[in-house]
Design a protein around this nucleic acid. Sequence first.
DNA 1: CTCGATTGTCTAGCGCTGCTAGAATTTCGT
DNA 2: ACGAAATTCTAGCAGCGCTAGACAATCGAG
Lengths: 213, 213
Amino acid sequence: MPPHQRRDRQRADRHRLILATARQIAETEGWDAVTTRRLAEAIEYSQPVLYSHFAGKDEIVAAVALDGFAELTEALRTRSVAGAAAGGQVRGGQVRGDHVGGGRASESRLGAVARAYLDFAAAHPAVYAAMFTLHTALTFATPQSPEPLRDAFGVLRDSLGEGDEDTGDERDLETRTEVFWAALHGLATLTAGHRLRPAQADERLDLLVAQLA
Amino acid sequence: MPPHQRRDRQRADRHRLILATARQIAETEGWDAVTTRRLAEAIEYSQPVLYSHFAGKDEIVAAVALDGFAELTEALRTRSVAGAAAGGQVRGGQVRGDHVGGGRASESRLGAVARAYLDFAAAHPAVYAAMFTLHTALTFATPQSPEPLRDAFGVLRDSLGEGDEDTGDERDLETRTEVFWAALHGLATLTAGHRLRPAQADERLDLLVAQLA
DNA sequence: CTCGATTGTCTAGCGCTGCTAGAATTTCGT
DNA sequence: ACGAAATTCTAGCAGCGCTAGACAATCGAG
């Protein structure tokens, strides 16, 4: 009955093209350069086409942010196990191609996750800005939060709560995770804004991990 | 020879009026509502007058941010000594009129400063956004940084380095201050973005202070 | 295979933004 | 009181997000 499959597939492709193009422009020239006219020209369609996929520019940014959360989660997961094992080379996903930080001989799982987080923010500043700085209408810290958001938070929590498995204070673990996340987020944004001494990045990370362990 | 004093004074008044109005609109309706037309109408002048005081809108935001740093420094200083003493009521500056947090019976100086920081960010979210989130062209972490910026950082550093006065590691103190600031900034922004559980604010602050002490 | 209907796309334009050139006005020194 | 200088305003430009209505391509039925 429905051989509209091709049209649907083409439409989905264009959907992804819009997001990838928006992301690429944002990453190279900043989000201010991502205008509807510019984006439409880049995908070789007219502006109204964008609005047949997304309700508006905000929704495009939100979609990029959501993808970012999924990629961040994957990066944290990958580096989490790698860091716990030996700190081996990282494969797959969005991280490949970036000159990721040290990959130290032996690093705590907490340190590996923290480093992965800051590496992600540094490697994809525009996506990170879409996730946190630009006020997308994504809700947080509630059951209504989209899945990728809660997943990312979950990896952070797991990396904190591995030492004391059954010590009971799960409420405290949630709070510790929030503080951990806040510290990482602060380091990420202040670093991106050139508000911290660039050379001391590793020093700050080590200190943070030491204080939280 | 120069009785232009009145004109100069009026001009300075108008300068302050512009900043105060911009800040007020931003604080009540967000920075998006601060347009040059809106601002010009509010001060009862035409738009070009704004450009005889500031090079552009960005410079207005930057000026508000700079004022914010001075006020933050004062708030931290005040609450720092108050917290070290007994945690008494706070007076003066921008904090008056706000229902500042607890004012606990006895709190560490570190805790008092941290609380003052988060209170400031919560009480003046638009100013705090101008200081950090909006990408003003203010430089940091260099000798060229404007004085109020280095002052605010200095208060944080002092609150961290009071225990071990002459233990030598001043380099480490600088790094500890950066991490402290990053954690506070992360808590402030994530809280403002409703990304943390509102009820656990005190819990997070206590945990952070305990980990850094 | 053709034709009407449906779907998809584009052109053109609205109200808004930050910003500025040049005209009109006010204020000043003589 | 008048010409010069400083100040302020009117009007407009290019670009923004977004949308209505005209146009073109594709589809299903006869």
